[in-house]
Simulated assay, not measured.
Amino acid sequence: MIVIQWGDTDEPTALLTKARTGDDAAFEVLYESVAQNARRAAHRIVRDAYAADDLVQEAFYHILRAVRSGHGPTDSFSAYVMATVKRLAYRYSKTQSQTMCSDDNTLWERLIAPVAFESPQADVVAAAWETLPKRWQQVLWLIEVDRYSPAELAPRMSMTANAVSSLATRARSALRSAYLAQLQEA
């Protein structure tokens, strides 16, 4: 473990101030002081050295962007890094738990084979789906099929979690109405 002794001019808050103004060397010193511990923390959560390295790099990328835009930590740099790394590692672990691994080729073939809808309602559902705006189709697919939560989608959609939830509710209602209208036409 590398222990860095901070001098009067190189304490973390002074280095953060320098990094905020674009000093790459200052951010490098901050990086070197915390990266090894951050890797260890990420590895404890994800149990994969390569994924842990990627998560640490992603955390530092986000932190550097935040610092350069005037946001991010103003003190307690190492605590901020550790919190960011842990948040990313837990999110990564959650997405990996949805991954299914199998050596069974027949299962793989069934999973990638096109789904044949034999139901007469399939055409009605497809027609109702096509009447929805693309944004509503997207939010319904992400929430109902891909199982994302509104909180996970909020940053991607530049909305609050409540706004995403409200959008999904309106989209479900519109799909229901469109489905009933298609049934009446059929």
Rank of each mutant, 00 (worst) to 15 (best):
Val81Ala: 00
Leu167Cys: 10
Asn105Asp: 07
Met100Ser: 10
Ala163Glu: 06
Val145Met: 15
Met159Ile: 05
Val139Lys: 02
Lys94Phe: 02
Tyr90His: 14
Ala83Tyr: 02
Val139His: 08
Lys94Thr: 14
Gln96Lys: 10
Leu153Met: 09
Arg170Val: 11
Tyr90Ile: 09
Ser173Leu: 12
Tyr148Arg: 11
Asp103Trp: 03
Cys101Phe: 11
Ser166Trp: 03
Ile112Ser: 08
Glu152Ala: 15
Ser177Trp: 00
Leu111Val: 00
Arg91Pro: 00
Trp129Asp: 07
Leu88Val: 01
Phe117Ser: 01
Ser166Gln: 08
Ala154Glu: 12
Ala174Leu: 10
Leu153Thr: 12
Thr131Leu: 14
Ala127Arg: 07
Arg110Leu: 13
Leu153Gly: 06
Trp129Gly: 07
Pro120Asp: 05
Ala151Tyr: 15
Gln98His: 04
Val124Thr: 11
Ser165Pro: 04
Val125Asp: 01
Glu152Phe: 13
Thr99Cys: 06
Ala116Asp: 05
Lys86Met: 13
Thr99Gln: 09
Gln137Tyr: 03
Val124Leu: 15
Pro150Glu: 05
Ile143Asp: 10
Tyr92Trp: 12
Ala151Ser: 14
Leu175Thr: 02
Thr169Trp: 09
Ser97Arg: 14
Thr84Val: 05
Val139Pro: 03
Ser97Trp: 00
Trp108Asp: 02
Leu140Lys: 12
Thr84Tyr: 00
Leu153His: 07
Ala154Lys: 10
Pro155Asp: 07
Ala163Leu: 00
Met82Phe: 15
Tyr90Glu: 03
Arg91Thr: 05
Leu153Ile: 05
Leu175Asp: 14
Tyr80Cys: 01
Tyr90Thr: 05
Cys101Thr: 13
Arg172Val: 15
Gln137Ala: 03
Ala122Ile: 10
Asp104Arg: 00
Ala127Tyr: 00
Leu175Lys: 00
Ala128Asp: 06
Ala122Val: 02
Asp146His: 08
Ala154Arg: 12
Val125Trp: 09
Met159Ser: 09
Ala163Phe: 03
Leu142Gly: 05
Trp108His: 02
Ser102Glu: 03
Ala174Glu: 06
Pro133Glu: 10
Lys86Phe: 01
Arg135Val: 07
Arg156Asp: 06
Trp136Glu: 13
Ala161Trp: 09
Arg147Ser: 12
Val164Glu: 03
Trp129Phe: 08
Tyr92Ala: 08
Ala151Pro: 04
Arg147Met: 11
Gln137Asn: 05
Thr74Leu: 07
Ala116Phe: 12
Asn162Lys: 04
Lys86Gly: 11
Arg87Met: 04
Trp129Thr: 04
Ala83Thr: 12
Ser93Tyr: 03
Pro73Ile: 08
Ser93Cys: 08
Thr74Ala: 05
Ala168Leu: 07
Ala168Tyr: 12
Ile143Glu: 06
Ala161Gln: 11
Val81Thr: 06
Leu167Val: 00
Lys134Ser: 11
Thr95Pro: 01
